[in-house]
Write a protein that binds this DNA or RNA. Structure first.
Length: 120
DNA sequence: GTATTGACCGTAG
DNA sequence: TCTACGGCCAATA
């Protein structure tokens, strides 16, 4: 598909959010009951973790909805939970996928970790 | 156009 | 073990 990458996000774009769409795409590829980290996605896309986090900042405006709750930091900590609405939603969604969360941290994160660079 | 910030990561002290 | 610093890319002020 030629033309028009269009980013449906942040509905005032006029710009190619290609990288953002990539991040969202990978986020949607995360299997249910699994989690990954910003750095893993960044590495897979060849970018920096900060941009991945920034991309997630607009995940609420993106459709279909992006499972940002499956994306955590390297420690498996729910650092971005304050960006959700409500903030507790993130943990709720994780528990809904049979993922145990304790003190804003995913239990057995190492075991549930899903690395795009490895799995893809 | 420059400076600061951001849901981060890795290494050094 | 814990704290401090730099690097990475893009958006915002």
């Amino acid at each position: 598909m030629p033309s028009k990458k269009n980013a449906t996000a942040i509905d005032k774009p006029k710009k190619d959010y290609t990288f953002f769409e990539n991040v969202w795409a990978v986020a949607r590829l995360i299997p249910k009951g699994r989690v990954t980290s910003y750095g893993a996605i960044a590495k897979y896309l060849g970018g920096s973790p900060r941009v991945v986090g920034y991309a997630m900042n607009g995940c609420g405006d993106v459709k279909p909805k992006v499972p940002a709750h499956r994306v955590l930091n390297r420690n498996g900590l729910l650092t971005g939970r304050h960006h959700f609405n409500p903030p507790e939603l993130m943990q709720q969604l994780l528990e809904k996928e049979k993922i145990k969360v304790e003190k804003d941290q995913v239990v057995d994160f190492k075991r549930l970790f899903w690395d795009p660079a490895t799995e893809l």
